Simulated assay, not measured.
Amino acid sequence: MQINPYLYFDSNCEAAFKFYEKALGAKIEMLLRNEDGPPEMASSPERKKNIMHGRISIDGQVLMASDTPPDHFRKPQGFSVSLTVKDPLDAERKFKALSEGGSVNMPFGKTFFAKGFGMCVDQFGIPWMVFSPSEG
């Protein structure tokens, strides 16, 4: 069994994936657009380029997402995507990249439970926790 987060975006899934490519070294594996669906799944002309299903891998881990129809979109809440990075300097770099254009809820820094930990919301509204575990 495998568990993967599935994120919903407000018509900016492709831009978010390209951002994650740059910020996290992610690899876009699939961007299936609404226009790629069968004729019976026709979408409005302004939504044809939106993402019906997307998949990226980040260091071998899978994250999936799509653009939600505007009347179904809700601001993400009640979860965070957690990123565990062994090297605290790399973790801090990834944290800073993710928080660029977003907001920081807890600055990245050493804690009693980790070499480094921080919480942010990226520019697309997705909450993240970046964690560099203590050895032991």
Results as ranks from 00 to 15, higher is better:
S103E: 15
I56N: 00
P69T: 10
H72Y: 14
V81Y: 09
A26N: 04
A26E: 05
K49I: 00
Q2H: 05
S132Y: 15
R47G: 12
G37I: 00
A42K: 14
L98G: 06
C120F: 03
A23Q: 05
G102R: 10
C120M: 06
M1Q: 06
I58P: 00
P76Y: 15
N12D: 01
A114L: 04
I58Y: 00
E100W: 00
M119A: 14
S99P: 05
F124G: 04
A114D: 06
P5K: 05
F79I: 00
F95Y: 11
E135R: 06
L32A: 09
Y8S: 12
E135D: 14
G102Y: 04
A91N: 12
T68F: 00
N50C: 04
E135T: 09
F124W: 03
V104S: 08
A16S: 02
P69Y: 11
P70T: 13
G125T: 09
S82P: 08
A23E: 06
P88R: 14
D59W: 08
K49G: 06
Q2I: 06
L63V: 12
E29F: 00
G54K: 05
V62I: 12
F131Q: 07
S82I: 12
E46D: 15
I126H: 06
S66I: 02
E29N: 10
P38R: 12
C120R: 05
I51E: 08
E100D: 13
G109I: 11
R93I: 03
Q77L: 07
F95H: 10
E92Q: 14
N4L: 03
K110V: 12
Q2K: 08
A91H: 11
F108S: 15
P39Q: 14
A26S: 09
F17L: 07
P69H: 13
V62T: 14
G37N: 10
Q77K: 15
A15L: 02
L89A: 14
R47M: 14
G78Q: 08
D90M: 10
P38E: 15
F124D: 02
N105P: 07
N12S: 03
I56A: 01
K27N: 10
S80I: 09
S57C: 08
A26Q: 07
F112W: 10
M64A: 09
F112M: 14
G101F: 07
